[in-house]
Design a protein around this nucleic acid. Structure first.
Lengths: 193, 193
DNA sequence: TCAATCTCCTAGCACTGCTAGCAACGCGGT
DNA sequence: ACCGCGTTGCTAGCAGTGCTAGGAGATTGA
């Protein structure tokens, strides 16, 4: 009884250990460096142990991604609640999103490039994903006007994601990061005059 | 003299053969299926031959990407020149961009996800990339208003890229593709009233 | 015809994700 | 306290990856 509980606790600890090890390794050297061997070395267990926790490497990346969505939702929430007027709230949330992406590049990769099979915009969508999306929805709601709110939210989020992605990939002219973000915010504020 | 010319011609043919084989294979089964062995089998040469043409697998993907940018520039150009008023031109160019991405998913991957070391927004940027960007610039120029034209172009392109990326990844609600594109276009048209 | 060059293939290296099979540990029942 | 048994986690190995060394074989010019 209590023995089994202790075991489950230890298993849960090791589960988290794997996820955080993968995340650290990815953030330090990129996802290419996250191999099952290096991971097993880092957690001080053999490789097969990984497969008793996750179905494979992709599942580990998905777990990291999920952690990322939870943190992103938190970051957006605190940016939103700390703001006053709708205009300011939007600017702050967008800035928080961009800052999150730049501060955790490997994590952002896991969320949007690696974990391709996380169910989005569906009934089975994990809570952290829904939470993050909701933050966008809430901050954009006052600005919707006569548009469809869900569509408007998706488009705004997409635009921000695109900006962050190309920025991080070195595909935009250097040194104009802030100007671009500001312009994007303005573009979504315009309808309010 | 003429012998050497023939050889160079044959080498060029084989170069193109590799690029088109990689593209076909990627489009048919995804980039994970594009291994040096399968590629060499497809072109009916041994693997080392690939390395006499390209420095490695990444370079092959970059060559495919370059081809993609050239085709994208063409598609955008014909969409733009076929249009009348600035509003219509923008809508048509955006639609052409999205259609290109959906029609050639693996090619789009090569352009924006795989080939991470293509120099963008720099003096050494390859001509096809500049051409594609120029199409955006030209179609957006009449809509710039008091914004900085280059920045405006980059932001608009980023937004469209983000929409396409999340759409393709199944991260947006299904069945609203056209509505989203339309809303994005409207969003960038608004300043003109 | 012969030597030289150049092209291209076979074989192999170090690595990847993942799995089979076994040894040893720790548990529950007597 | 002991012993059988189930569980845990290891070693070893498989098929496949990108890439390269070395040597055959064909093609060239003299």
């Amino acid at each position: 009884m209590s023995v089994q509980q202790r075991r489950e606790r230890e298993r849960a600890r090791r589960h988290d250990l794997i996820v955080s090890a993968a995340r650290e390794l990815a953030e330090a050297e990129g996802w290419d460096a996250v191999t099952t061997r290096r991971l097993s070395e880092k957690i001080e267990y053999s490789q097969p142990v990984l497969y008793s926790h996750f179905s494979g490497k992709d599942a580990i990346a998905a777990a990291v991604a999920l952690e990322g969505f939870a943190e992103l939702a938190d970051a957006l929430a605190s940016a939103r609640t700390g703001a006053g007027a709708p205009r300011e709230a939007l600017a702050r949330v967008f800035a928080a999103y961009a800052a999150f992406a730049y501060a955790n590049p490997a994590l952002y990769d896991a969320m949007f490039t690696l974990a391709t099979d996380l169910p989005f915009a569906q009934p089975t969508t994990p809570a952290p994903l829904q939470a993050a999306f909701t933050q966008f929805y809430e901050v954009l709601a006052p600005l919707v006007g006569d548009r469809e709110a869900g569509t408007f939210t998706e488009v705004a989020w997409s635009a921000l994601h695109g900006l962050v992605t190309l920025e991080r990939g070195g595909r935009l002219s250097v040194g104009r990061r802030d100007e671009r973000l500001e312009l994007l915010v303005e573009q979504f504020l315009i309808p309010l005059g």
